[in-house]
Simulated scan of single mutants.
Amino acid sequence: MIAYEEIKVPVSGGELAALRWPATDPQAPTVVALHGITANALSWAAVARQLAGRVTLIAPDLRGRAGSSGLPGPYGIAAHTDDVAALTEALGLERVVLAGHSMGAFVAALAAVRHPDRFGPLLLVDGGIGFPAPTHLTPDELLTAVIGPAMDRLSMTFTDRAAYRAFWRAHPAFAGAWSDEVDAYIQRDLTGEEPALRSSCRIEAIRADGVGLFGEEVLTAVRKLPVGATLLWAARGLMDEEQGLYDEDRLAAADLGGTRVEPVPMKDVNHYTVLTGERGGREIAGRLVALTH
């Protein structure tokens, strides 16, 4: 895994933690990259390596996760957009390319709508285009239906880091796709002391974000984008199931505004490995380089 810098920038209520992988050329463009709902900045490590110093990549730990777990509420998608805008302002970045994976893609789309002067083109990775929620479900039932296994993890404790590694290695999405980068990413999530290690994700933040994904402002953001955007979608799902979050029929029926939609060329890539895997990371890195030039 290539070296990165830990940085912090002022946001409402404290400081937002972020990782920065510097470009070889100090004058190279910068990309800001946003992670998924229970993830952290190191989920972008494979992409950073594949970028090979061609651009600077900055990935924050979103409010309520990992290095930013101490930030207080209010939580929610809109709060993340303000944090990302504050990050770019603190670092002197203008019209920066913005990428997001899963929930991070929804944050990216809304950030571009709410802060149109701060962001340039968007790359939405297996996220950013939502569908109305079933009306018969309560907010907690809805959240369980969408990210149930991930929510279960937040209330679990682990005796040591090896136990947490074993938990994740048994996840179907990572079968045959484990790496040192994935290991570092999941280990960044842990907090506490043995034998009661736990996820650093604050459950109240995850709940606010999960329910917020179905809010009208979030669902319609992709139709109001002031910049160009591409959705890159994976064929397989969160548990490596054959049905992914998106498919050609669902996307054909959706109102996407001017957003382009393209499947990941590799049919065996799932919701996680589109970002953390070797081939998925290479595909995303290539797209980001193209967007910055």
Rank of each mutant, 00 (worst) to 15 (best):
R165W: 10
A108T: 00
R169T: 02
A86I: 09
A85Y: 03
H115P: 00
M103Y: 05
A163Q: 08
A99L: 12
T144C: 02
D82Q: 15
P139N: 07
A175Y: 00
L143I: 13
E89A: 15
A79T: 07
F167E: 15
T135K: 13
I77P: 09
E141C: 01
G92Y: 08
D183S: 14
A162H: 14
D126A: 01
L154V: 13
I77R: 03
D183F: 01
A109W: 00
G128T: 12
A166D: 14
E141R: 02
I129M: 09
D117M: 10
P74L: 07
V97S: 05
L98Y: 07
L110T: 02
V125L: 08
A173H: 05
A170N: 14
A177M: 08
H101C: 08
V97G: 07
W168S: 04
I129T: 14
P172H: 02
T81I: 06
A108H: 01
G127R: 01
H171S: 07
R118F: 03
G120C: 12
L123H: 09
V96S: 04
F106H: 13
L98C: 04
A109S: 14
A112S: 12
W168V: 02
A177P: 01
L110H: 00
Y75M: 07
S179C: 11
A109Q: 01
D82N: 12
V107H: 02
D117N: 12
R118V: 12
A163V: 08
A133K: 06
G76V: 08
A133Y: 10
H101V: 02
I129A: 15
M151Y: 08
G92N: 11
E181W: 04
L124A: 04
H80I: 03
G100K: 04
P134W: 00
A108N: 04
P74Q: 09
A170D: 15
Y164M: 12
T88Q: 12
G100P: 01
H101N: 08
L87C: 10
G128K: 10
L124Q: 03
R161I: 03
D82I: 05
F119V: 05
T157N: 11
G176W: 09
F131A: 14
D117F: 02
A78K: 13
M103E: 08
A99H: 05
F158I: 06
G127A: 08
F174D: 05
G176S: 08
A166R: 12
V146H: 09
A145C: 09
A133D: 11
S155E: 12
D82K: 06
S155V: 13
L123M: 10
D152F: 07
G130V: 07
A78H: 14
D82W: 06
D183R: 07
D160S: 10
L87D: 10
A163E: 15
R153L: 15
T81D: 04
A177G: 09
V107P: 02
L123R: 03
A86W: 10
A177K: 10
E141Y: 00
P116F: 01
R95D: 11
P149A: 14
P132Y: 06
L87W: 04
P121F: 04
G76E: 10
R114P: 00
P149L: 12
D140P: 02
M103H: 05
F167D: 13
S179V: 04
A166L: 01
M151C: 11
S179N: 10
